[in-house]
Design a protein around this nucleic acid. Structure first.
Lengths: 180, 180
DNA sequence: ATCCCCATGTAATTTGTTACATGATTGA
DNA sequence: TCAATCATGTAACAAATTACATGGGGAT
């Protein structure tokens, strides 16, 4: 499933513009699927080319026309087919963990700075989750609630783990420079 | 930090071939940083071009020469500089969670199949972790132990969350086809 | 026989990121 | 006055994935 499909899925919730979708990527989808304008706008063009969405141009003053996209029946069929994949992946690419693997080559303060930065990022996610909850999710489908809970659970686990184990990394580097 | 840098980091542990590094990506690094031959071999070529590694070709019969790469002092400096970045990212791209967001459009058995598949993937990671632990990690640097523990903690959190919350997704789809 | 392990690599393709390009309105 | 929000997009670039290309040795 790529950005195209996720955009299409978002449109099942009602018509939206590329700008709207970007906001949704930043808020609710941000913690597990990122996308910027550079992939969203081309995705919407592609979906329109394939008649998976229709586009209504709403004239505005002082701004470009707002383009409201709506999912079509063909689009819905396409989405349903994409959702039939029972083996969707869950990929992690962590420069953070890769860095930590080589902590023994780093200076103590540097390691702790990396850890602090990671904790602050986790804190931002937790804040995001709180905001979502405060805006009310009673009308949300169960799947979306499940995903939010998943994000919270993983964030909490990461935070706890880092706080409880960072002390083990508070040592000096093993500077074995040209000693091979 | 990209595949090049991670390969270079792996070589601080001793000389290795592209094939060796691939195995390491599959085992210890697999749960947070994936790479295939298509990125490893070009990465090693690039590192050699920049004198960050040296290459010793070991003739073999019936197989291509084994190319043993060693990190150089320049390479070590390059790596150290890369590790100074205090803001390494930790990216997740989850088609699994994206799919679950649209669970209300899916059939019950399909949802449960996706969940089962995810649990089986998590099981594979847990097995991987067990294998690593059985092979002994007493000589591992603290950072590597930290990373392994991190993987275990996150995997456990995901598994628990899915098992405890999957029942909420055991409902029928809200098949609102062309009712806009 | 057949499959997996060893061992290298390239080329085409896919995919997404970043920088560029424009510009009015609104609130602090 | 300054930053943020609204609102669109393209083009160049970076990076990794997938498929292709080759082939002997050993285990089942």
């Amino acid at each position: 499933m790529d950005v195209k499909t996720v955009c299409l899925g978002m449109l099942t919730d009602g018509p939206a513009s590329g700008y709207d979708l970007k906001k949704e990527f930043e808020s609710s989808f941000g913690h597990f699927f990122a996308a910027g304008y550079g992939s969203i706008y081309p995705a919407l063009s592609w979906l329109a080319d394939h008649q998976y969405v229709s586009c209504e141009e709403i004239p505005q003053e002082g701004k470009p026309d707002r383009k409201l996209y709506r999912i079509t029946e063909e689009g819905r069929q396409f989405l349903l087919k994409a959702l039939k994949n029972t083996k969707p992946c869950h990929k992690i690419r962590s420069e953070f963990l890769a860095t930590m693997c080589f902590a023994h080559l780093m200076e103590r303060e540097n390691i702790q700075a990396v850890l602090d930065h990671r904790l602050s990022e986790i804190g931002r996610y937790k804040e995001l989750f709180r905001n979502i909850e405060q805006e009310g999710m009673s009308d949300w489908p169960e799947g979306a609630k499940f995903v939010l809970g998943f994000g919270k659970a993983v964030a909490a686990a990461m935070e706890t783990y880092i706080k409880e184990n960072r002390h083990a990394l508070a040592t000096e580097p093993t500077a074995k420079t040209a000693a091979g």
